[in-house]
Amino acid sequence: MSAREPVRNNVVTQSLAQIGLCGLFLLTLLAAIPRSFRYLRETTRQLWFVGAMSLTIIMVCGLFVGMVLMLQLYHVLSIFGGTSASGMVVALSVYRELGPVVTALLFAGRAGTAITAEIGLMRATDQISAMEMMAVDPIAYVATPRFLAGLIAMPLLCCVFCAMAVFGGHLVGVTWLGIDNGTFWSNMTAVVDVRTDIVNGVLLKSLAFGAVVSLIAVFQGFTTPPTSEGVAYATTRTVVASSIAILALDFVLTAFLM
């Protein structure tokens, strides 16, 4: 038992050290924002890769989340004769929780891993050193544009996800299960509030998740040992760390915003 003690202690201190380094890295990133304005074109390019290229998966997943949610709710609510409220419940649960969280998890899997692997490989092939030698700051040119792109892309992706989920819910509820179209929309619009549900739920949460996921992805890419093994390991760690961070942060944000 006592032999295990230092090992566990080691894991704890290692995790703390990672969090600390990650925090310092965030400061470096933020400090580089003014310098990265020169590389606005690069930010746009990254926005294309992390944002626009993730659209398909986000849209398909959003559609199915809305459809399955409506299907489940319809069967539960029909017990109480409250099927007309199912559209409203779909909207609320997607806006407040499922939209930001599922989008962030997908984003971590789709864009976060790509960022980590790309930066890791750039380090492995000396591209980062080459930039430094060409007097181009890799933090301002590589890290910050990807971080900013993630920050901008996440809320937009989340909005698309939510819209698709509502559309999917409408598809199943109204077209398939026969809920009245007017009832579906009126119940939804009566309850969904712009500030508490859309600004606090969709936008604020996804902004926070976007920051966390892209920070972790960039950080892992920059700190991984520049070998193929190190890159593979860092990619896995990006997904694991992002998922934990998203769900933990979701709890904290929900507690604060509600």
């Binding site: 746009t44 390019r45 926005l47 294309w48 944002g51 626009a52 659209l55 909207a91 806006y95 901008i152 892309a153 809320p155 937009l156 992706l157 909005c159 698309v160 939510c162 819209a163 509502v166 929309w185 939804m188 619009t189 009566a190 309850v191 969904v192 509030d193 712009v194 500030r195 549900d197 859309i198 969709v202 936008l203």
Partner: peptide, 27 residues
């Protein structure tokens, strides 16, 4: 162009959420 389209689509979705599925009158 693609990035611009993506941003426009994102904001269109936001506008849709805000105006079509919520009680905009609240604000």
């Amino acid at each position: 162009v693609g990035t611009g389209l993506f941003i426009v689509l994102g904001f269109a979705a936001l506008a849709y959420l805000a105006t079509q599925t919520s009680s905009v009158a609240n604000v």
